[in-house]
Simulated scan of single mutants.
Amino acid sequence: MTTQIHLNGVVKTVASATSTPLLYVLRDELNLNGAKFGCGLGQCGACTVLLDDKPVFSCLTPLGAAVGRHVRTIESLGSAAAPGALQAAFIKHQAAQCGYCIAGMVMRAQALLERNTAPTDEQIRAHMEPNLCRCGTHMRILAAIREVAAAGSLQQTRKGG
């Protein structure tokens, strides 16, 4: 049996069981490797993607939960050659040390800035809290998010919804 999902603005047909974690479908079946397996328990956020514009842990979200909804991954925001506003700011501020958490961080920040274009530092910190950076680049991550919010440049990155 196959299932269709709306992924990064395109309808995709997948063969995985609807109980399969969305993360495994993205990585193993669709070859989208931005979201990472970190803990498998929804405690680190490395696997964060947007489901109907809300951040979710794709390691805990079954494929069936994505049916009829819109899934966005880091791949929808830009590329190495043409990064989106948040991706460019993360690069500029050297927010990635090991880089493992960054796709999840960017996607969670994307969700915030799409909802609130001028968040306070307190709002940014509260929203980003579920995602962990074990390298300790939190201050650089916050600086990147602040920069994009101040510039009002997020509109340029909203694709694939």
Rank of each mutant, 00 (worst) to 15 (best):
A103P: 14
A82N: 13
Q156A: 15
I141W: 07
A149R: 04
L51A: 10
C133N: 04
N8G: 04
K54Q: 15
A89W: 01
E75G: 08
R158Q: 14
G68A: 10
D53H: 14
V25P: 03
T120H: 08
A81K: 14
A143F: 06
R146H: 13
F57Q: 05
S79K: 06
I141G: 03
R125S: 12
R146P: 02
L77R: 08
A150Q: 15
R158C: 09
K12N: 10
T117E: 13
H138L: 12
E147S: 14
A85G: 04
Q123Y: 01
D53V: 03
C47W: 04
S76W: 13
E75P: 09
E75A: 12
Q155I: 13
S79T: 15
L154S: 04
A89L: 02
A82T: 14
F37H: 11
Q110I: 00
K92A: 15
K36A: 01
C39H: 08
N131V: 15
N8V: 10
Q94R: 15
V25S: 03
A95N: 05
P119L: 11
I145L: 08
H127S: 14
G68R: 08
C133P: 03
G84Q: 07
A15K: 14
L30E: 09
M107T: 06
A89I: 01
T13E: 15
S79A: 05
T20S: 02
A126M: 05
L22Y: 07
T48M: 08
D121M: 07
G34V: 05
Q97P: 05
A65Q: 13
A96D: 01
E75M: 07
G64V: 03
A85K: 10
G45K: 01
A143N: 13
G152K: 08
C47D: 11
L112Y: 11
L41H: 13
C59S: 03
G42E: 04
G104Y: 01
L51P: 07
G99K: 11
G45N: 02
A85P: 10
G160I: 12
H6D: 12
A150L: 09
G64L: 06
Q155M: 08
L32C: 02
C98V: 02
G84W: 05
K92S: 13
T61W: 08
G40H: 12
A15I: 07
M105A: 04
A118I: 00
D121I: 04
A149L: 03
T61N: 02
T157H: 08
A109N: 09
S76K: 11
H127P: 01
L23C: 12
Q110P: 00
E29H: 10
V71G: 05
A88N: 06
R158S: 12
Q155S: 15
G161L: 14
N31F: 12
M107L: 13
